[in-house]
Design a protein around this nucleic acid. Sequence first.
DNA 1: CGGTCTCTTGACGGAGTTCAAAGCTAGTGG
DNA 2: CCACTAGCTTTGAACTCCGTCAAGAGACCG
Lengths: 190, 190
Amino acid sequence: MYAPLLAHIARYVTLTAAEADLLIGYLRRQPVARKELLLAQGQVCPANYFVLRGCLRTYLTTEKGTEQTIQFGIEGWWLTDYASLDSRRASEFFIQAVEDTEVVVFDQQVQEEVFGRLPQLERYFRLILQRAVAASQFRVKLMFSLSGEQRYHHFNALFPEFVQRVPQYMLASYLGFTPEFLSKIRARVG
Amino acid sequence: MYAPLLAHIARYVTLTAAEADLLIGYLRRQPVARKELLLAQGQVCPANYFVLRGCLRTYLTTEKGTEQTIQFGIEGWWLTDYASLDSRRASEFFIQAVEDTEVVVFDQQVQEEVFGRLPQLERYFRLILQRAVAASQFRVKLMFSLSGEQRYHHFNALFPEFVQRVPQYMLASYLGFTPEFLSKIRARVG
DNA sequence: CGGTCTCTTGACGGAGTTCAAAGCTAGTGG
DNA sequence: CCACTAGCTTTGAACTCCGTCAAGAGACCG
């Protein structure tokens, strides 16, 4: 079912039933098992992914061999490596399922054609991207203006249910510190 | 002269001379003196700004009273607070001229109208935003995978001329550490 | 059950901060 | 064209947050 995606689009632009059908003709759904990769470092990112259910994350491996989570995406979020998608060069990131997940795949190859036929959809993606930039400005703000412990409490207050869903070592790497430190924060308060 | 902006647009989409004239009718140019603010914290961000010459930065003040630079924008870059522009709520950021600067102002109020008349321009901004998201993913990657000193050397290698243009305390707050620490890094190497 | 992931706990070390004071530099006005 | 001032940069000492390493305790899955 593409209904969650169509509902999401409807929050930004209006598509007729015929236009929605036209769009769906270009899309496909794909299940992704927990820990499975949608994109591996070194590969050219082939598509933009919309999470129907489950959870994805973008991460990379540092020189020391540790994983660094860049972004999470749950139901209703688009996730991709825009740098690779845009330039068609090898990606520096992995995109992996945190839980068993189902995504809508919007292939890079058909995007220009779809935008040509559905200008409303180009507007939708402009607005989605605008929100993504806003979210990333917000993240930079938090990274710099709060201590590690404050970032954890802030995140916990904003997304309490989400903290339950992801392993703590992923959350730690997203918040910018080690799993050991996260464990010590939790020991202090609960 | 709007030529630098039109040249920038031409790198992404094609506008006829008539379309370019139509666009320019919606724009205006504005000089911004060094240290002058284009946007203050608490204000609703009224426009998107394209730097014709000079340099802008987005920053905020933390609880401790220190400034935190979120982003720089030099010639050929668009800068705004997308969260405020989008939601029309009060901004958390300042946008300030680092040097004497001249910008093109693209007012929020006319954006929808312009995009309606020039669908090519909507595509242009989609692509600009895509690059902005890619840049911000890259920045998060650097923030987490490199030490403070490594970030400085990396930035210095990528934008040597730019490092000359901005005060060191701004650069330090952009790279995520104190001016004192930047000074010590420089003392070590040169 | 048995093994592999994940989380916890503690000792120690280091990258970067804070605070304070002094040295520079650039703009400003006389 | 010089003198003054305000803002920027440097330097050093003490300190702190958080990382690293290591060992053990759970927890989940086949």
